[in-house]
Simulated assay, not measured.
Amino acid sequence: MTDPYLEHRRLLFATAYQMLGSVAEAEDVLQDAWLTWNSADRAAIRHPKAYLVRTVTNLSLNRLTSSRATRETYVGPWLPEPLLTAPDAAQETELADTVSTALLVVLETLSPVERAVFLLHEVFGYSHAEIADILERPEPTVRQIAHRAREHIQARRPRFDTDPVEREEVTARFITACAGGDLNAVMEVLAPDVTLWSDGGGKVTAARRPLYGPDHVARWMLGVLAKPQTAGGVLRPATINGELGVLFTVQGLPAGALTFDLADGRIQNLRMQVNPDKLGGLATRPGH
């Protein structure tokens, strides 16, 4: 018989990752959950899956609450850790769409409890009663939190329906333009109101504030790619957080990830993760 922890590991990883926006922290939570599960009285656990989800959710809540102070002093924009996902979304039912970088960024604006309620209800399909049991809160309270969180997300979540073929074409044009150092070609694939957020965590070159406009964004991007430490790097398309994005490698090792939204065939919101401490999810596909 398969151990319930191993059977549900990908679901548990997805839960922790979406709660925390961090591959490394999600893996730490899963390790703690395994220790809890391993020492539990299995005979007394009637519903192992519910027990494990409750354990992971509460461990994630504790970690998220304690990490808020750290994020408030973070150098520059904070972006979630990128995660390589399978191109075939059908094989990644727990991860596809629900882990888009855009959604994870918006989830950061919720309180830890709001985030947990939203994910458990909207993403994983748990009822309000089940969530009340997981979080040990009255069901009416959970319903109020769910309503507030849903309205908050709907008001802030970018909504772009992109044709996959169009996304492939724009990604290819963007990579070619950047690799060739062609300023005009880069600007042509950027929307007039493009915004770039870059997360270097104070460890590598990154803009401390968002950059606006095609000229500013394109010049900054090409400047970064021309630096000695990134010379010889390779840009290639990759499925990152359920969407086609760009993976940047130097000597075969992940050095950055770009995810973006499209509007009218152009890149509108560009998110660039280059913090070396946040690139572990690009080397492998965690959660397996």
Rank of each mutant, 00 (worst) to 15 (best):
V246E: 12
A207N: 14
L253S: 07
G201S: 04
N269P: 03
G223R: 06
G202Y: 06
Q251P: 01
P254Y: 11
I240M: 02
T259M: 05
I240K: 01
G245Q: 04
L258T: 09
L253C: 03
K203R: 14
A231W: 12
M221W: 08
L235F: 14
G252N: 05
T205W: 09
D261P: 05
V234P: 00
G201F: 13
N269Y: 10
Y212F: 15
A257D: 01
V204E: 06
G232D: 01
Q229L: 15
M221V: 08
N241H: 08
A257Q: 01
L225R: 10
W220I: 04
R209L: 09
L253T: 04
D264I: 06
L244K: 09
V234R: 07
G232T: 03
G201E: 06
V204F: 05
P237T: 02
V204Q: 05
T259D: 03
R208V: 11
G265M: 06
D264V: 05
F260T: 00
H216G: 00
T249E: 14
G242A: 12
L225C: 03
I240L: 11
G232E: 02
T259P: 02
G223N: 10
A238L: 12
T239I: 11
T259F: 08
N269K: 08
R219K: 10
A218M: 01
G256A: 14
L244D: 03
L244I: 15
L247E: 02
A257H: 02
L211K: 04
G252L: 10
R208L: 14
L258P: 01
G232V: 08
L253M: 12
V204N: 07
H216Q: 11
T230Q: 14
D261L: 14
F260C: 02
A238N: 05
G202C: 03
K203L: 15
T230D: 12
V204D: 07
I240S: 02
L235K: 11
A206D: 11
G242Y: 15
G233E: 09
T205L: 13
V217D: 01
V224Q: 11
V234K: 04
A231T: 05
P214L: 01
Q268W: 07
A263P: 00
Q268Y: 12
G245N: 01
G202T: 06
I267D: 02
P228Y: 05
V204Y: 06
R219F: 09
G252V: 15
M221A: 08
G213E: 03
L258C: 05
K203T: 15
L225Q: 06
L253G: 00
W220D: 03
A255V: 00
A238V: 13
L211H: 09
E243N: 12
D261Q: 12
T239F: 15
L247M: 03
T249Q: 04
D215T: 13
K227W: 00
A238P: 12
T259I: 05
G201W: 08
F248R: 00
G233F: 12
L222G: 00
G213H: 07
T249H: 13
N241I: 04
A207R: 10
G213Q: 07
A206Y: 15
G256Y: 13
A226W: 08
L235N: 12
I267S: 01
D261A: 15
L253P: 00
